[in-house]
């Protein structure tokens, strides 16, 4: 087979509809907005787990926040009928991710678990993925971050510390998924059990608004939640096929 044929063969393979369905897992997170209280525990848990730098007041003032999950807040109405809703916003691990197509060096790609992976080593920092992402969940290392000693002793050895000029984002705590798979393998199981792996944010969520699992497993909690009539995708019109499913907030007197 010559080069062109080989290229076309792999092209067809990747272009085949349902390519991702052949994978073992399709990790999914559900966010129940009716449970979310906006407390921010997920934000700090993520910061602790994923070595997310402390940015500092000056740089935050310039808009360089790094937290991979953030709580967006939306007001409706005016006093005294003002209402506030929170929505945790994190990488949606889209199946049709705009960020993946634009990276000129393929530093972000779709891995075998349907995760939108970011290879820090390969990133050259064009930041185009952040432009293409409609959810604004990619964060750029505008400079080398610094931890005042001995805060660096807390850094998680399972997660790298990113250098300047590199894009980063939520990984669904891929290091935990990796570990759970290894455990499953050690136990002689082929699959990770439902609930065996939880990203830091899901693990800590005090109101249990976040759940995580494999949507390919029809008995998993997430698969059931996805069938809830409240389930929806944020910015569904962009057709990014996200792996994060939100459950609508219930408004007792919404119309």
């Amino acid at each position: 087979m010559n080069f062109i044929d080989r290229f076309m063969a792999s092209w067809r393979k990747y272009r085949k509809p349902g390519y991702y369905e052949e994978f073992d897992y399709a990790w999914t997170m559900t966010v129940d907005l009716d449970r979310c209280t906006g407390c921010g525990a997920c934000v700090t848990a993520c910061q602790a787990e994923n070595n997310i730098p402390i940015v500092g007041e000056k740089e935050l003032g310039r808009g360089r926040e790094m937290q991979w999950i953030r709580i967006e807040r939306y007001w409706e109405g005016e006093y005294p009928n003002a209402k506030l809703s929170f929505i945790p916003m994190l990488c949606q691990q889209c199946d049709a991710a705009p960020c993946e197509t634009v990276c000129p060096v393929s530093a972000t790609y779709h891995n075998q678990d349907g995760l939108n992976a970011q290879i820090y080593n390969r990133c050259i920092g064009t930041r185009s993925c952040a432009v293409y992402c409609p959810y604004e969940v990619r964060y750029f290392n505008y400079y080398d971050h610094h931890w005042d000693a001995p805060l660096e002793q807390q850094l998680n050895p399972d997660v790298t510390v990113r250098e300047k000029g590199v894009m980063e984002k939520c990984t669904f705590c891929v290091q935990r998924i990796r570990q759970a798979k290894d455990h499953a393998k050690d136990d002689g199981r082929r699959r990770v059990k439902d609930g065996e792996v939880q990203p830091a944010c899901v693990q800590t969520c005090p109101s249990e608004a976040l759940t995580f699992g494999d949507r390919k497993d029809a008995n998993s909690v997430v698969a059931k939640k996805m069938n809830d009539p409240r389930a929806y995708h944020v910015l569904e019109e962009t057709n990014t096929l996200p792996s994060v499913v939100y459950l609508k907030k219930v408004r007792a007197n919404a119309d």
Partner: peptide
């Protein structure tokens, strides 16, 4: 680092 420029989180 690119932080020397004025770019920020949405306007990268």
């Amino acid at each position: 680092g690119i932080g020397a420029a004025g770019m920020n989180s949405p306007t990268v």
